[in-house]
Design a protein around this nucleic acid. Structure first.
Lengths: 333, 333
DNA sequence: TTGAAAGCGGTACCAA
DNA sequence: TTGGTACCGCTTTCAA
């Protein structure tokens, strides 16, 4: 009713109920036994339409009830899956989720960590950072708990959830080899991005080990874009590549398109494997074999680590390694 | 360095600089002219590593610097596009974005609006609500500005951004008719969801007008799921449907799969149109014709409306209608 | 110009 | 058990 008047505060409730604000606070937080008083307060609360201010409570408790999660790009399937899984956990634990889109700008990371000093969230999950020393130091000095999802090898004082991108590439290469591919190519993303570089390195390593490495069959794109992948794939197909690893599912899709444009069949003439095991892979025609990097699992773990730490669990730094697994579908049979 | 000691507050700066906290506040906010004092404060700030507490400032200013955006499902391409577009605007305007995933539970909407009374955000964008009277009243009574993205026809006192789902279906049907389809089918989502119902209604209306409506060629799924779509599509294909509207791009993809499974060619034997114009449509094989409902545009508009209102612009309630447009690709040629 | 003090909306301590 | 009060960290009014 009183939508014109400004919000009711605890004072209004106290006045209305004829008690002190301390009593109101206690009654509302179950710290009093006097049923009659509790009842009076409840009536007053209804009457003045009182809702406790999050701000007031936060200032007092020094907790905001919010957790931030920073991802380079929400539109990216694997970050999205992580985000969704983490948000679910946060929500169940009573935390709101604040989304930070870093836009892949690696320099933003440092600013985000520094921004934590403003104390606007109780914790942070940050993904895919470039593990610079400077950044690690800043995280270690941070007062609010931070969980990093990415690839950090060194021993650090915070929780880390990571996956083995190199193994992902290895799984893909071995699968292609076992399917009889002779010339195996890679369409990968930029080497100055974490996923771009690690997948590339894994590919080179595995392909070399199996004696199928040929630098000419590797295309490193300027960006993880479908169109760039399409052009690169056409070229490699012309060179006779018969087994492809796409650095992401989207890039794998570009290979499917290029094969089709070339009048070649997947998987009869060309076999294709993607990375991320996103919805796009499941729904592609033909259905795309893909390496699942456990994005959902990583999001869940990171969120659980953080929530546990926020619950006062002051354990030693935890490290979780989610192992990739291959999901074989039509495109590589 | 002093990462063990708790954060420095304005008091620490004041002590260090040998001035009052008021002076520190003024110096930091450019409300003083004394250069010497400003300099002293700055040095002290550096020394004690002071960062103003967002909480303290918020309590004082009654503004949190945060905006919430509620979507039924982030994994859904169109909500994701909206979210991303809105987040971009918020970020530029200096607001953080808090994500609320309603999980499609329509009853959550009311709780979200009510939760605003806790004042943990400065504004809210809420999408795809079922426009119940109760909810509208609650929004109108809300102290924090709310922008609704959805389909509300009545005159309300808040900003609304909507699209015409019926026209979307109409565009699709007319296109299929113009391409020579004789038996036109729909694979749609549940009628108790806003997108499910409006798209269905638009389809019926347009198909009837063009004399191609046949109830037997309409499949209403229990859920917007690919697998359900696949089964339904197989059945309709068996019935000889030669032109399909998928209620979403994902459902359209299920039609592509079903056609392929039936050994029929898209678009030679069967033509398919989806709705959302998501990335999945662009990357499908064959590339999928789809109706673009302007998710990005809607997200942008909603965010702009909200930011403008938060900037103190107390204009009359605004209504924006984003018109759908068809993006013709291979699947319907 | 500067500092003291009130106030934002709560919680928690301490006496009564 | 209850009420008074200090306090969380900051901004802003009011006197000096």
């Amino acid at each position: 009713m009183s939508n014109r008047a400004s919000r009711a505060t605890i004072k209004d409730v106290a006045r209305e109920a004829g008690v002190s604000i301390s009593s109101v606070s206690r009654a509302l937080n179950g710290l009093t036994a006097n049923q009659e008083l509790i009842q009076r307060v409840k009536v007053a609360v209804e009457l003045v339409e009182y809702v406790p201010s999050q701000l007031g409570q936060s200032l007092q408790s020094q907790r905001t009830g919010q957790i931030a999660i920073a991802v380079p790009d929400i539109a990216n399937a694997s970050y999205l899956a992580m985000l969704k899984a983490a948000q679910q956990i946060f929500s169940e634990a009573g935390y709101r989720t604040t989304l930070i889109n870093t836009g892949g700008d690696l320099n933003d990371d440092l600013e985000i960590i520094k921004g934590l000093r403003q104390k606007y969230v109780d914790g942070l999950i940050i993904t895919s950072i470039r593990p610079r020393t400077e950044l690690i130091e800043e995280i270690e000095a941070s007062e609010v708990p931070v969980v990093v999802v990415g690839t950090i090898i060194e021993a650090v004082s915070f929780d880390v959830v990571s996956t083995d991108s190199r193994e992902a590439a290895r799984l893909a290469v071995e699968h292609l080899v076992s399917q009889g591919c002779k010339k195996i190519g890679l369409i990968g993303g930029p080497l100055d991005t974490v996923p771009g570089r690690t997948r590339y390195e894994g590919f080179v390593e595995a392909a070399t080990r199996h004696g199928v490495f040929d630098e000419n069959n590797v295309a490193i794109l300027k960006d993880f874009q479908f169109d760039l992948g399409l052009v690169a794939a056409k070229k490699l197909i012309d060179q006779g590549v018969d087994g492809f690893l796409g650095g992401t599912d989207i890039l794998a899709l570009s290979i499917l398109h290029a094969s089709r444009d070339a009048g070649l069949s997947v998987p009869l003439n060309i076999r294709v494997v993607g990375i991320d095991n996103s919805e796009a892979a499941r729904l592609a025609i033909p259905r795309l074999t893909s390496i699942d990097l456990g994005a959902i699992e990583r999001g869940r773990l990171a969120a659980e680590f953080l929530v546990s730490r926020l619950s006062g669990f002051d354990s030693a730094p935890k490290v979780a390694l989610v192992r990739p697994r291959i999901v074989v579908r039509e495109s590589s049979l």
